[in-house]
Design a protein around this nucleic acid. Structure first.
Lengths: 190, 190
DNA sequence: ACCTGAACACCGTTCAAGT
DNA sequence: ACCTGAACACCGTTCAAGT
């Protein structure tokens, strides 16, 4: 039973969704594939790189490539797609946050946001920092959101339910901020 | 050699700074304190709660309690203090991000930001989401920043140096966004 | 190209018992 | 209030060798 790199990633997502990030070990994943843990090192130099590939695949499944509309509509579409992807799998947000914390992954979402932002009239030097700030908002907010969702389904329903509209509001704050900065930069040059 | 809870946290910060988050194990920390690893469970029910206490202490060391100035000046002071605290210790940002990812910690920074925001004329229902969005920005941005700083000092100097002014620019985006949203809400009511 | 088998050097956590 | 000692059930990673 020979496994390709894509087989390994797919099975890792299944293990993640079924048993959680804490149980996604090299030994567990190997067993799930009917293979010794050491066989996984044929595809990935270490666990961190495996997890990065898993996170990227998970996020890729949620990216909607909307290339029409105003820049802020396109940004909202990309961010919404990222949120959906993270919420679609158990511990999805924690995985993405973990991978991001050791400096890997999320290239495709960054590129998608850069493209959306570049379709507007924004100053070019604002685009990279705006894209990164949006990414931080999405990853951070959805991480909070999933933590509360999963805590709610596992134990007592303690705090008030996190409204989905909170994501939209937080996103509106960041998008408005990008617009305001762009205006100020243009004013500063005129 | 009896250790208090505070002794354990202080020593954990020393181990973190000296050897990195990956080497901050219960066994290592116990050895460093001249104690069996099991002794640590007298103070903390598990490692996650220990790490949460360490992250909170680390952040507390950077919080400047400026209670004067306009709300945006106060927000900038708090966020700058958090950034300094995270950058002051090896893997500080990764620790904070990790703790945050499993839904613990950062209460004091959240309260400090809420207080700063509440000192302005903002609609009350905007304060919680604004505080959380600021926190996501700071944790995410400084995490990126420290990853690049530490990668630069450990290996080759590949990419352009991350400017400290990028933090200020990103923060300005979020603060401008909060202001813009507040204005829109007031307009909507009038 | 993908896998085995065995080993190395570790982990977090529990628990009865000690002072 | 804080600690020991021993055990349980695991980890990630390496590497020579196999097909």
């Amino acid at each position: 039973m020979r496994n390709s790199r894509a087989d390994v990633v797919d099975r890792a997502i299944a293990v993640l969704d079924g048993y959680g990030l804490a149980d996604l070990s090299m030994r567990r994943l190997g067993a799930e594939l009917g293979v010794q843990p050491s066989a996984l090192y044929h595809h990935f130099a270490n666990k961190q790189l495996l997890l990065a590939a898993v996170a990227d695949e998970l996020l890729a499944r949620g990216v909607r490539a909307s290339d029409e509309g105003t820049w802020d509509e396109r940004v909202a579409a990309v961010c919404g797609g990222l949120r959906d992807a993270m919420l679609a799998y158990r511990d999805g947000a924690e995985l993405v946050a973990t991978v991001h914390a050791f400096g890997l992954g999320a290239r495709a979402p960054y590129d998608a946001l850069s493209a959306a932002l570049s379709s507007g009239d924004l100053p070019a030097d604002l685009v990279p920092i705006a894209a990164r700030t949006l990414l931080h908002f999405v990853f951070g907010h959805v991480s909070d959101e999933q933590t509360h969702l999963q805590a709610g389904s596992a134990g007592a329903i303690a705090d008030p339910p996190r409204e989905a509209s909170e994501f939209a509001l937080g996103l509106a704050i960041v998008v408005d901020g990008i617009r305001a900065r762009a205006t100020e930069e243009f004013a500063g040059r005129a």
